[in-house]
């Protein structure tokens, strides 16, 4: 890893340089929530924040996107190769992107995601945890790769970790300074303090097996209040599911094929033509969701979004504790 130092006073210079590389999307506070939005000025950016409503995934895999256009039976791909910058991404969300990379860049890769990923610079920044964060117990409390630059707040300056060739070129710009062991030590202490604020713990030992053997009654209990609204999936930085629809125009020849984020908690997720649903109730869907997040492998990055935004107040960590047989 290459390290550099950036005085906070020089952050606007970095921002300008990023802007020359593409549209900058950064956390912005609006109406009591923080969201990634296109920004023109660093002043709009909320540098210290806890979590955005939707994860930065939305810029690489848009909530809704046209993937094809057709005329008759002839299909053409729809793609805009815009350059972009994701500025101010937290450790957990960078790790979330890495988990998505493993799905969408795996052969055969998803061209839409892959091209956007290639066209997007990622600049990380350390976060402000709250009581819902548990990134440190799912191994996502620190990002070691998946970014071009990562900014660690040292008070008056940032230690900048450089994670890519483009990041290297940026770090060679005049307003960056050399950084060494001293700054890295400072950053490590800062990170230790920051991670210390992540108090929530989740015990995943044997979790997959616990999920597999949990009985129907147990599942009914943990999902009793579930409204099957899909929010938990839609705000998740690692949910990959999408659904596809064809839209037809009135000339009945032309139209487009669009994909939209999907949720495994919804009716149609495992429904096949003819009416058979392989996951007919929230019980099977909850088993599937938890298996996907923490059973088969750890896909959860501990951002806390599914708990924070669940309209029924279902707590992901408590759900898993219940499956473990605790808090019953």
């Amino acid at each position: 890893m290459r390290y550099a130092k950036l005085a906070k006073a020089d952050l606007p210079k970095l921002f300008q340089s990023l802007k020359s590389r593409g549209e900058v999307f950064a956390p912005v506070e609006e109406g009591g929530k923080v969201t990634f939005r296109k920004v023109d000025d660093l002043k709009e950016v909320k540098l210290e924040y806890t979590r955005t409503l939707l994860p930065p995934k939305k810029l690489l895999l848009p909530p809704e996107e046209e993937i094809l256009r057709y005329e008759g039976e002839e299909y053409r791909e729809s793609f805009e190769g815009k350059k972009a910058v994701l500025f101010g991404v937290h450790h957990c969300d960078v790790n979330g992107l890495l988990k998505l990379d493993r799905v969408f860049l795996d052969s055969p890769r998803d061209e839409y995601y892959a091209r956007r990923r290639e066209n997007t610079l990622v600049v990380g920044i350390s976060c402000v945890p709250d009581r819902y964060c548990f990134c440190t117990s799912v191994g996502s409390g620190y990002a070691t790769t998946g970014f071009d630059l990562f900014l660690h707040d040292l008070g008056r300056e940032y230690l900048v970790r450089v994670g890519s060739g483009e990041g290297y070129r940026l770090s060679k710009e005049g307003y960056f300074q050399e950084a060494g062991k001293k700054e890295v030590e400072q950053a490590a202490r800062m990170e230790e303090r920051r991670m210390g604020k992540v108090r929530r713990r989740i015990n995943l030992a044997g979790m997959g097996d616990l999920i597999e053997t949990e009985g129907k009654e147990g599942w009914e209990e943990v999902s009793a209040k579930c409204l099957a609204c899909g929010t938990c999936n839609l705000v998740c930085p690692t949910c990959q599911c999408y659904d596809v629809s064809d839209l037809l125009t009135l000339d009945v020849r032309k139209g487009s094929r669009v994909r939209r984020w999907d949720s495994c908690m919804l009716k149609r997720h495992a429904l096949v033509a003819g009416g058979l649903n392989f996951r007919p109730t929230v019980v099977e869907r909850t088993v599937n969701r938890l298996s996907c997040k923490v059973g088969e492998e750890v896909r959860c990055v501990g951002c806390g979004r599914c708990t924070v935004y669940c309209p029924a107040g279902i707590d992901f960590v408590e759900m898993l504790s219940a499956v473990r047989g605790e808090a019953r």
């Binding site: 929530k33 409503l53 409204l227 099957a228 984020w261 949720s263 919804l266 009716k267 935004y309 309209p311």
Partner: peptide, 17 residues
């Protein structure tokens, strides 16, 4: 056959509930 919440979240609205 999905609820209003889906499009609500896709538009990045906070939850009114």
């Amino acid at each position: 056959d999905y609820p209003v919440c889906v499009e609500c979240k896709l538009r990045e609205n906070g939850c009114l509930m």
